[in-house]
Amino acid sequence: MNDTASNLPPGSQGIDAFAEAIGNHAGILRKVAATYCSTEHDRADLIQDILVQLLAARGSYDPQRPLSTWMYRLALNVAISQVRSRYRQARVLVPIEDDHLEVAGPGADHEGRQERALLDRAMHGLDPLNRAIMLLYLDGYSQAQIGEIVGISASNAGTKIARIKQQLRSAIGLSVNQEF
């Protein structure tokens, strides 16, 4: 998959072509939403907000740079902002989690929910910025790429990954294979 949108003129990308390029990287949006939201409703809301911002900000995208890096930056910034807003609102209004209502539903996707719970469990104890690091790490990005997206040095990214692994090991019994 071409990771840039270099076929598009800078600053004036047509919305259809740009939307198609974004659609080719839709996995990024699902991953960010799964990392920062625990209900289906919140995930859909977050993805919608990210998509609106991506389309609105398309003029500032530099087609010579990887689209996935830009998408990850924007998606993470929107997601972290939403998480902080939700935290503030939750102090006043605590909503019933959709997933709790779905548990006994006839078409409930128990396997999918268990997998999401696995991700929730790993991410729950991390602050929003460390979640971003962990997400990028799990998605296979190098320390240098993580540093570029988050805005820290590669060595700092490596240090933070090691700390997060340690935190997960003691918090949820995460086992770390040799490959990692």
Binding site: R30, A33, E115, L138, I172, V176, N177
Partner: peptide, 19 residues
């Protein structure tokens, strides 16, 4: 819990099998 399990969950999201 294994990091490979977490990567598999994310991998499913990449291919659109979930979400």
């Amino acid at each position: 819990t294994n990091l490979a399990d977490l990567r598999r969950v994310l991998g499913d999201l990449e291919t659109g099998q979930a979400g």
